[in-house]
């Protein structure tokens, strides 16, 4: 005769209540599989797009890391006085940031170039050697800041020299990567917000269909938590499904776009390899799905249960 007595009086009862809510939620989903699958598909699509971008960016960064191993600075000397060249050579000898340096004579370079041409006769059309003398510097450091400083030092000695370091494009790639990450964050956040709203809508309409059950449960003393619990488990189920589906979409998308992407990169002489996403990518995807599913269910159930009596 004291019905409140048993409420949550034991941890097993509490766990059983949660298991019941989860099971009930799963059963309901299995009874209306089409609607649940639509929710899962929507979440999967929404997750897959930023995930794909993310994998691309990750691979692009691997590309820049690859280049980083062997930074070079080339000094083009066509507009540089011999005195200045001597000064440059002197500096290169003494600067600790320089591993070694090679003088590439213009005539020598032209001769090499001639060997590689299919029709060497072409070069005879030229009145004089168009190639400059070049000093090829191999720095002792790969640190971008130190490289930048070395580059500036060389440019200061020979203002007329064209100083080109191939870490320039590594830097550009890095800033592109940063930009990509920022775009990914914005796009991801917007898509995630959209997913949460769609799932909230689905949860609210599902609860509206169960209005009578909720009314009777309320009258029988159900708490807000009790009433929303199946919805939250439902959100987690949808989130799990969406995460798995997104993972499958991602793997498929990468498998399909790998060859064309690598071919395109090869056309630009880039050693680009599209690696399959690792376990951490897939796990993140799964967690993102669970989080979005849960948030959507929370928002939707909070709204739907608030107006009920």
């Amino acid at each position: 005769m004291r019905p409140g007595r048993r409420l949550l009086d034991t941890v097993p009862a509490w766990m059983e209540a949660h298991r019941d809510a989860a099971r009930r939620s799963l059963q309901r989903r299995l009874q209306a599989p089409i609607l649940s699958l639509i929710s899962i598909a929507v979440l999967g699509f929404i997750l897959a797009l930023p995930a794909y971008l993310w994998v691309l960016l990750d691979n692009a960064r691997a590309l820049s890391a690859h280049i980083d191993h062997d930074p070079r600075i080339a000094l083009y000397l066509d507009a540089v006085e011999p005195d200045t060249v001597a000064e440059l050579e002197h500096h290169l000898e003494s600067d600790a940031r320089v591993e070694r340096w090679d003088w590439i004579d213009a005539d020598e370079a032209l001769a090499q170039y001639r060997e590689r041409l299919a029709d060497p006769g072409l070069l005879d059309w030229l009145d004089e050697n168009p190639l400059p003398d070049v000093i090829d510097v191999v720095p002792a450091t790969t640190d971008p800041a130190a490289l930048g400083a070395l580059r500036d030092a060389l440019a200061a000695i020979a203002p007329g020299a064209g100083v080109v370091s191939d870490d320039d494009w590594v830097r550009q790639l890095n800033s592109l990567h940063q930009l990509g990450l920022r775009i990914l964050a914005v796009v991801g956040a917007l898509l995630g917000l959209g997913a949460v709203l769609i799932l909230a809508l689905a949860t609210a309409s599902e609860l509206r269909e169960r209005q009578e059950e909720i009314a009777i449960s309320r009258i029988s003393g159900a708490t807000h938590c009790f009433l929303r619990r199946p919805s939250l488990y439902g959100g987690l189920i949808t989130g799990l499904g969406g995460g798995v589906f997104a993972g499958m979409l991602l793997l498929t998308g990468i498998a399909l776009s790998r060859a064309p992407l690598e071919q395109a990169a090869a056309a630009f002489d880039l050693p680009f390899r599209l690696a399959l996403p690792g376990a951490s990518h897939l796990l993140t995807l799964l967690l993102a799905g669970l989080l979005l599913g849960w948030l959507g269910a929370r928002l939707g159930s909070g709204h739907a249960l608030r107006d009920a009596p």
Partner: peptide, 11 residues
């Protein structure tokens, strides 16, 4: 069973 579920009765 509904009221008992709300009261978290065990199976």
């Amino acid at each position: 069973a509904l009221p008992l579920e709300i009261l978290a009765y065990r199976r």
